[in-house]
C-alpha cells in the first residue's frame, strides 16, 4: 500500500454482521463479485469464512517442515562434529559416533526449530506486530474481538467503487455499514 498517493480518501468500506454464517455468505458474495482485496474480521476462527478469502498458498506449513529438517541436521551435525572431530572422548569404550545416544538431542532440536518457526512464521507472515491499522478507526470495530463479524472491502481493489461497493454491502442487510478512514 502506497500511503503517499492513496487512490481513495478512505481505506475501505466495512459491514457488520451478527453471525458467522452471515459473514460467510457476505464474503462469498464479495468474492463472487470479483473483488480481490477484502478481509473479514471475526472473534474466533470460522472455516466457512476463511474459505471465502482470496487464496494464499500453504506457505507456513512448508516453512515449518524445512525448519524442522534444519533442526534435525543441526542437532545431528553439532553432536557428530563435537563428539567425533572436535572433542572426542572415550566413554566406557563406546564409539565416538554413538548414534543411538544422539537421537534425543537431534529430536529436541528438530522440534524446537519447527515450533519456533510455526510461531514466529505465523506472526511475521501475518504482518504483526502492527499496532496501527485503519480498521481500528471504526468505533464499532471494538466488537470484532467480542461478538460481531465484519467484512471490509479495501479501496485498493481495482473493482472498488464507492457507490457500487456500498450498494453491494448494503444489500446484505448488515447491522451497520461504515467508511474506514486511514
Amino acid at each position: 500500500m502506497n500511503e503517499n498517493t492513496p487512490k481513495h480518501p478512505i481505506h475501505g468500506l466495512m459491514a457488520e454482521f451478527d453471525t458467522p454464517e452471515q459473514l460467510a455468505a457476505a464474503a462469498e458474495r464479495v468474492k463472487n463479485d470479483g473483488y480481490q482485496h477484502y478481509d473479514a474480521y471475526m472473534p474466533f476462527p470460522v472455516e466457512a469464512v476463511e474459505d471465502q478469502m482470496p487464496k494464499r498458498g500453504p506457505y507456513l506449513g512448508w516453512l515449518i517442515l524445512i525448519a524442522g529438517l534444519c533442526g534435525m541436521f543441526s542437532g545431528l551435525g553439532l553432536q557428530t562434529y563435537i563428539a567425533v572431530y572436535y572433542f572426542p572422548m572415550n566413554i566406557g569404550g563406546r564409539p565416538n559416533f554413538s548414534w543411538p545416544q544422539f537421537i534425543p538431542i537431534t529430536f529436541e532440536l528438530s522440534i524446537l526449530f519447527a515450533a519456533g518457526t510455526a510461531v514466529f512464521g505465523m506472526i511475521l507472515l501475518n504482518g504483526l506486530p502492527r499496532p496501527y491499522h485503519p480498521v481500528f478507526n471504526v468505533d464499532r470495530f471494538e466488537r470484532a474481538s467480542n461478538d460481531r463479524f465484519f467484512i471490509c472491502v479495501e479501496s485498493e481493489d481495482p473493482k472498488f467503487d464507492m457507490e457500487k461497493t456500498r450498494d453491494l454491502l448494503a444489500s446484505m442487510n448488515p447491522l451497520s455499514l461504515s467508511e474506514v478512514p486511514y
Binding site: 569404550g93 554413538s98 543411538p100 545416544q101 537421537i103 534425543p104
Partner: peptide, 9 residues
C-alpha cells in the same frame, strides 16, 4: 529399549 540397553552396555 535400544537407547537404554545400548547405552548401559
Amino acid at each position: 529399549q535400544l537407547i537404554i540397553i545400548w547405552g548401559a552396555n
